[in-house]
Nucleic acid binder design. Structure first.
Lengths: 139, 139
DNA sequence: TTAACTGTATCAATAACTGTTACAAAATAA
DNA sequence: TTATTTTGTAACAGTTATTGATACAGTTAA
């Protein structure tokens, strides 16, 4: 399977929108910069719209623009909008209840999973879209 | 695709080995507790062996045992032994070099990826296998 | 009324993961 | 020496997530 690159693409897309805040940006233009198909972009924008990060207009002269200022968009919001939010997966099958380890390990791992996921979210919460844009402009 | 559950399974397997430290544990027995096929377990043990976390003996009366004490096995070691180590993936295609955003975004995202991965690793480094076993025994 | 967009359904291609069978190689015990 | 038990690993099927592509309905502005 191709690895899930939606977060990386979403950051790219939102950066383009931020840099073109006076206009409605078309999915065709974004797809050119990301080097993919416009439908891939529209699909991603759909998720970002659900998370209230962007707004779109259909029809002639349509396109998408940011729903908030870059300084008010935290990377954790972007991550939550497009990811499953789990760094590692739990057991695919239920462990054996008759084994003392199998009986108790699932709960421990579930708690650990939540803790790791929270750690990632907190780290991503430390940065805004504006922080990333500033780094790009330093070049 | 099935989600990668190797880290969760590896913790389960190592816990079983820790609880049976006087003997060589067979893949068949472990598979019973994990509720999967013995080959899945042997494949995983192969990775753990490469990381020097376990040792195996082939032949009659063969099996696997821990290569270190539980207090000396950090969860970060387990994670590194079985995972790709990347919380999110970068662009599948190279962004457009002619776009000012496309030209610079990859480097920024790569740095961010490394930072997030490091955050996870540091968090997992705070716990040892013994810490998890103690939690199981609290039940 | 036409043209240019978005939104979304659908499908193919790819790739990763689990689970399974099969069998070679090794080690022990008889 | 031989039979048995076990690991190690190759190979393959089934499943599922993801990307990318085509197609087209619906909407809006000119």
């Amino acid at each position: 399977m191709a690895a899930n690159s939606q977060f990386a693409t979403a950051v790219h897309v939102l950066t383009i929108l931020a840099k073109n805040s006076e206009e409605r940006v078309k999915s065709d233009y974004i797809a050119g910069s990301v080097n993919t198909n416009p439908v891939v972009i529209r699909r991603l924008l759909s998720s970002l719209q659900e998370a209230n990060l962007v707004e779109s207009q259909v029809g002639v002269a349509g396109g998408t623009f940011l729903a908030k200022r870059p300084k008010d968009i935290r990377l954790s919001e972007i991550y939550k909008a497009v990811s499953c939010g789990e760094v590692f997966a739990l057991h695919p099958n239920k462990p054996d209840e008759n084994c003392p380890v199998g009986k108790n390990i699932a709960a421990i791992l579930c708690a650990l999973q939540k803790e790791i996921d929270k750690t990632v979210e907190e780290k991503l919460n430390q940065y805004t879209l504006r922080d990333l844009i500033e780094k790009i402009e330093e070049n």
